[in-house]
Design a protein around this nucleic acid. Structure first.
Lengths: 201, 201, 201, 201
DNA sequence: CATGAATGAGAGTTCATTCAT
DNA sequence: TATGAATGAACTCTCATTCAT
């Protein structure tokens, strides 16, 4: 099981410095999602944390780095989680179910992080080196496996990957804007069913 | 006959308010999509057009208004187009096919506009009064009709609406990032097929 | 009798150009008094008149000149009026009464002009060449005459001049801010009485 | 012992927020009186102080607030002083003498502040809540007291208040423009005498 | 580690003025 | 004469970042 952003039990054991750094990260995440990266000032972040502007630079080299750390660490960590839950299952259907569940869990546990990684900043993923696995790669791996194993019909794997992602991300978006009221995890079976129909599994 | 230093055509172009306004709109659209709204400065826009910063304010009251005009006009007009092509067809399948085609046409004719309306700024749609129909409304209308007519099974219309939109928008995104090479219109039948499977039509 | 800013009967006989110029002057006067010189833009003036910005420059070489014309013409003309009414009277008391009446008449006929000349822009008077008579000069002449003729006791004429002006201008100010409700002309005898006590006439 | 490049005194001066704030206030006061509020730019102020433009905003939220702080603080405090010196005296004549002296003292000690409060920005006093006592109120209180006590004849207190103020302010103005050479305090007895004649005390 | 005054660059915007039409 | 698009300089203000303390 992955730890999103910070685990409470470790925080207790840590010194103030580490704790401040995590409070900065969390405040930044919240504000970046709420107002956007450019619209969030260093002062917005530090005054939310209750420190002065200069203090932030003890923990992060700058605003860009802060945003990037926030993104890349968690983006990679979520991709790893996706692959981990997929590898544990055999058969396309089970794998899709497991991945959908992982998406829903992330959303329900930490909607801000979900938004930041997958809706707001997901165009930042181009900055990652190609060797790093992203959530998109994890889904594509699943799709390609499914085609090679004959679980689903052969087709352009990129189109199928995008379609599957699209279903989950757009439903998440609808949930954020209040058009859908149920938590994502409550809908995981429905979402899985839709995904399997998309893939004709 | 006198030969002016500037040809009449050039002079007309320089002095014609309409034309300048449209060149500003287009430059702004391009830059907003490329770099984002906040990251695009007035100077970026005007120097792309070849005018000074102050000149922009004869055509738009400010940066926000420029972005909003760009968004609202085209967003509403695309929603109208979606409804128009849908109304012309009977049956859920035909209606979905027509709407998918409209999405693909917009994308291929003007990918920047597509991105601006549906990927970059689509969260601005909340600022529109509820009486105005958006593309999301157009898709939802189609879904609700399909359920009422028995063309598709009853389910949460919001989830289905989001899923259908997700398929199209995420495939468009993959195309923009170069993961897919075919034009969207070339894939319209595939996209329609996926959408119909999503809806179990 | 002097004509403040423009006489209606002449305006009728004039061409559009002259009439526009006077409408510009009047609009500028109003706005300068209401909002201040720096806070009034060319656009404020021209849109009040109903012409475009460029058109103003057919009538005035620039904003500064417009303000200066407005000030100097009327300031001198009012100084002339003051001297005219004073010369007609013999004895300090009669002269003061006549001048107070002239101040009150200007205020009641054209409070904006009064404010502009005597309250708002009166520090511009330093730009006038010393050979030109100002309202302050007119009052000082009266004071000096009164001292030389033995109508009033000898003292620093500048202090007395300032005091007399102060009484009139500050009462006018109180009237503008609504602290006094009567028209200035209604109070002219009271004001004259106060002025004569100031001068110990 | 280490000798720093900048002496401690200098370093303290540069880093001491209080001191900088006061230097900004003083520079602004000087410039507002010399050139007017609108004609004074932030750059004018900060370059007079020897800091950059942005630094001003750590001490004041903006230009308007700076001007307003400058005005309201000192305006109220001078009104309090006026009332204080008046309360200490019995009888209209003594009270007027005390208040005239207070005006003269302010003028001679800080002519810029006098100008700013009473000549340049005094129309800002309308922005103060009615519960706050202004110098005008202080003078009016004295006038009303004098009438009620029978020290001076009954008349419109607003007219008398304005007249008394007018004498002092216009003499101060004449002094500023160099028409009068004596310091105001040197003339305080003359001014008092004039004021008493105005009020027929 | 934290403070917060200061920097310096750049943001959006306004405005007096010009000039081709 | 009038128009109004365009200029160019100035404006107020914001912000990421630095650094003496």
């Amino acid at each position: 099981m992955i730890v999103y952003l910070h685990s409470e039990f470790r925080a207790v054991a840590l010194r103030d410095g580490r704790e401040t750094k995590e409070r900065i990260s969390r405040a930044a995440l919240t504000l970046f999602v709420q107002k956007g990266f450019a619209e969030t000032s260093i002062r917005d972040i530090t005054s939310a944390v209750g420190i002065t502007e200069g203090a932030l630079y003890r923990h992060f080299p700058g605003k860009d780095q802060l945003a990037w750390d926030l993104f890349s660490t968690n983006y990679i960590s979520f991709a790893t989680e996706l692959t981990r839950v997929r590898i544990g299952k055999s058969g396309f259907s089970e794998q899709v179910a497991a991945m959908v569940e992982a998406f829903c869990r992330l959303f329900d546990q930490d909607p801000e992080l979900f938004s930041y990684l997958l809706l707001v900043q997901h165009n930042e993923s181009g900055k990652l080196p190609d060797t790093i696995k992203t959530p998109v790669d994890a889904v594509r791996d699943c799709v390609i496996d499914g085609m090679e194993n004959g679980d689903i019909p052969k087709a352009d794997p990129e189109v199928l990957t995008a379609s599957l992602l699209g279903v989950v991300l757009q439903v998440a978006t609808a949930r954020i804007y209040g058009r859908i009221e149920k938590g994502l995890s409550e809908m995981k079976d429905d979402l899985t069913a839709i995904c399997l129909r998309v893939a004709q599994a």
